[in-house]
């Protein structure tokens, strides 16, 4: 991570916008995911159940080899959302596996929806998807 500022000299008057850019691709991607289960209150889910369902989703679409990718559950929020960390190389596949997961082992319909994906954990603090056109 590198930060280019206007100048580190003494006169502070002209403030140019700062650009942040990653010098290399990050090794992990953080996904903020919500899980909805039909006829069930998803706020009651605990971490173990969440992890189990994520693994089930990966097994179903990607098979045993795909499910061997390390996925870390960092935080479970009360409203049925959580933050998971996946290796950036396999983000696309794991995300698709979550998207295509339709029903829990007990036969209830469920839906993983990725609310936000970012290579930086701090990036999850603000969601640019809620931006609207100024004209509308």
């Amino acid at each position: 991570m590198k930060c280019t500022t206007a100048a580190e000299n003494s006169n502070p008057v002209p403030v140019k916008p700062t650009n942040f850019y990653a010098e290399k691709t990050q090794s992990y991607v953080y996904l903020k995911t919500s899980l909805t289960i039909e006829d069930e209150n998803s706020s009651e889910l605990n971490g173990n159940q969440y992890k189990f369902l994520i693994l089930q989703a990966m097994k179903e679409t990607l098979g045993q080899v795909g499910a061997a990718t390390p996925v870390d559950l960092l935080k479970v929020f009360g409203d049925g959302t959580c933050i998971i960390r996946v290796p950036s190389r396999s983000t696309e596949k794991i995300w698709a596996a979550l998207t295509l997961y339709g029903s829990t082992p007990s036969g209830k319909r469920c839906a993983f929806r990725v609310i936000h994906a970012s290579p930086f954990l701090l990036g999850l603090a603000f969601n640019s998807r809620n931006h609207r056109d100024a004209t509308s």
Partner: peptide, 10 residues
């Protein structure tokens, strides 16, 4: 229903 970004990834 999945969100547009989920569909894009799909």
């Amino acid at each position: 229903v999945r969100s547009p970004w989920d569909v894009m990834n799909l």
